[in-house]
Amino acid sequence: MTLRNIRLGALVVAIGSLAVGIVMTLTEDHHEKAEITIGEHTTRTAGGLTFNIDTIISTLVAGALVLLLGFLARRALTKDADDHVPTKLQLIWEAIVGQVNKQVEDNLGKVHPYAAPLAISLFFFILFCNWLEILPTELNHDTHLLPAPTADTNLTYALALVTIVSVWVYGIRTKGAKGYFKHFFEPFPVMFPLNLLEELIKPVTLALRLFGNIFAGGIMLALITLMPIYILWAPNLLWKGFDAAIGVIQAFIFALLTVLYFAMAGAGHGDDHGGHGDEVADLDDHVGDDEAASAERTPVPAS
């Protein structure tokens, strides 16, 4: 199909939808505009806990997609050992894995066997969760089959918790409990409340940044659907394209910040990082020494 054909097709679709829209608005009664509600989920309650079913379903879908692609890539690269030509899927995975590994190596001094897979998993999972928003699965205003699960704080809180606990554990393992908690009192003991606050705010900002961006994307889509149907498709198309980019950027930011928090926890206070080359180098050496021992204790084996 040539570019000319695509243009022609787009033009036909545009004119057609415009005509249909005009006819529909002229013939139908003006029904009441649905009110945009936020934080509304289909819920089930079990054992005293409320579960957002739609979020859970879309989480499962996103997770299943990531796993499917991951295992397809794994099959592609373990299938034929003699053939060095990688498949496209494999190349995508390798590009992401390579980038994250490089980030982790730059910031942590080596490809950490826990931090790197965590950042990779976060990136892919968040990316697919965000992109579910683009699928037009909202049957009517009350039934959205696959809302972006990242537009639910439950998911983002969970991811942030995993991240921050991993960072704390990494920091304590790298510098020892004493060394790790000492940095709360640096550069002056007076700074302790601020340092503590910073450490506690980190996961909250991680979670709410992601949630806010994707949630706002959903609200934008809802606002766009309030427009007359003959004009609706244009901003909808534009916004979904933009939303896809936001989805990538937010996934990237979450993964990158995870790596940076690991680096901060390993190298002392954030302000010191990169400031004094010698100190960082020393710490990096120290990290390298400790990792040999701690790698065995990491919950996820490196290979």
Partner: peptide, 24 residues
Amino acid sequence: PNGTFFVELGAFALLFYLLARYVI
């Protein structure tokens, strides 16, 4: 957050484990 939080936690933990163990 409500109960979904725990489901999400488990789901991501499982995803992370599978990716880190079998894919990456």
